[in-house]
Design a protein around this nucleic acid. Sequence first.
DNA 1: TTCATCGCCCAAAGCGCTTTGGTGAGATCC
DNA 2: GGATCTCACCAAAGCGCTTTGGGCGATGAA
Lengths: 347, 347
Amino acid sequence: MNLKQLSETLGLSQTTVSRALNGYPEVAEATRRKVLEAAQAHNYRPNARAKSLATGRSMAIGHVIPVSAKHEMVNPIFADFVAGAGEAYLQHGFDMVLSLVPDDGEEAAYRELAAKRSVDGIIVHGPRTDDERIAMLRDIGLPFVVHGRMSRHADDYDWVDVNNLRAFYRATEFLLDLGHRRIALINGLVSMDFAARRLDGYTQALATRGIAPDPDLIRSDEMTEAYGYRSAGEMLDLADPPSAFLCSSIIAALGVRRAIEARGLAMARDVSIITHDDDLSYLSNRGEVPIFTATRSSVRDAGRLCAERVISLVQNPVQPAQQVLLEADLTVGQSTGPAPARTARDT
Amino acid sequence: MNLKQLSETLGLSQTTVSRALNGYPEVAEATRRKVLEAAQAHNYRPNARAKSLATGRSMAIGHVIPVSAKHEMVNPIFADFVAGAGEAYLQHGFDMVLSLVPDDGEEAAYRELAAKRSVDGIIVHGPRTDDERIAMLRDIGLPFVVHGRMSRHADDYDWVDVNNLRAFYRATEFLLDLGHRRIALINGLVSMDFAARRLDGYTQALATRGIAPDPDLIRSDEMTEAYGYRSAGEMLDLADPPSAFLCSSIIAALGVRRAIEARGLAMARDVSIITHDDDLSYLSNRGEVPIFTATRSSVRDAGRLCAERVISLVQNPVQPAQQVLLEADLTVGQSTGPAPARTARDT
DNA sequence: TTCATCGCCCAAAGCGCTTTGGTGAGATCC
DNA sequence: GGATCTCACCAAAGCGCTTTGGGCGATGAA
């Protein structure tokens, strides 16, 4: 059933039926009611392709997700982000289009997305410190919102980010206050902007106590459980092991805990962990006393905010760029404790 | 730059340009080359909306994801599924459209998706035992592939599933062979088809040894870490606690392990765990000796298979229904051991 | 009575592509 | 040398919707 058929059964013109359905004022109320009833009865929905061709709007937002051997954007954190964004899309009648693209073809993918006109706006994932996408994205003329930031750029674009620097500064400070001096950082890929900021926060906090960061205690990689386990294991086996770990993700933190316990050590008592917590629905770190002491910021909320922002930009493209900086809560859990007494060798 | 403009700059008709770009034979090779060059130079891409209106193909596959307070399809497992499917879509030039829909509006969502004609095919997620979607999906006439099965239905539709019954039968048998008699099942939501089959496998294996399932040792819920922790904790605190756990997801298994260790017990020595392992990229259970003994089946592969199948159906809708039943490997890890000697009370 | 106004509706022109049904020029055949 | 093909191209008709630019009859003011 298409518009033509519907209008024929009603004995009205396509124009009138279209206007009735879309709530235009120049159609009599009685007529509108009849049209709506008929549409309902025949289960009529406008063909989205035709509609978007006619209106120039496709009512869809694109998410470009780079895939490569070494980096996987499609991860549990992304899942929660998508869930949050999806809620916003659902509310506003937008579809969500995910395009996985090979790492090296990213620019082409954006251009293609724009040229194909299959989406009205874009959410940019995984910004890197040296990211050059801003100029290109502006060039192609689609509204976009970045989840995260691109350090090299002035704030003349829309983004939603967590205050990663402050979160990791505070977390480090928290460990320092507990007496820890050998603090390891299990970071995400440092080419990612968020990881670079976290490293900065960590380094700056150490600096306030006159501690130079020890390269042996800093790792940077894809934040899997196995990575956490491996990194923490190697560090714990050092002659001068860390007494605390600062982790970029709860998934990696699980691995760190496993490494600690595999060595017969007790979390909090022997080795402390503090992790960033994206408040994942399937790996919740809530409860009376959370498992991990953590800097918490819901990535689901971030997803929702990004989606709402891009929808707003689609509906009204001429707006000053807006930035949202989410602060992470520092919540104390069961994974931190005072630094254990140091051995003679340490002093 | 659209087709009309491109053809004007070339001094050719739209027809010829279109045919040249789409590889039709009735255009001279020299002309085709010129057209391709010009398209390249002007960065021309056909407008996807217009193209799909004209062809009737939208080159997109829809994923309908029910969301509700009690059930979250957007989870880490889903993320890996999407990653697998995305690879197939990328390869074949399809887009992936995710629609989150409220639990109660699912049927309407499918109908809408079909009526709007914004996708060429559908992947059905989270089939339930009493699922009535098959008839409706067939009714709306879009090709679809189910990830999982719907028990009530004959096999006259396309699906990709894991042999859940056999996997859990074997896993239970494995524990029984180790001498375990009190075996707990931490299952997914039993309204889900996969969970019902797993329960069957577990029950049948117990039955072969004349053991009646104990309702106190069977739980069914959303497979979060917290759920695993809570359930296992409560069971371990029973007067007659289980000596082994059978888990539906590695995420829940993490919670089970936490509960075990929180009680000062040792995994494998005191309490065994065997879990289904979806081979998630961020929670890998591989390595020399895997952490968990597990029935492993890659959900990423399942995603790829579903996507490839639906693409094949889009390209050629008249095919006999095809079913893919993946067998799970039973891999032995560090989480299982012989049942500890039983106390007097147990005998 | 006449003319402007208003309320309600319509025909037709796009949106940018594919595809049908040609056409004219040159090659081929008998 | 005329009929027939083939080759390479084109004009125009959709695909199903929105939107522009009226039109027509009733109403109210002059």
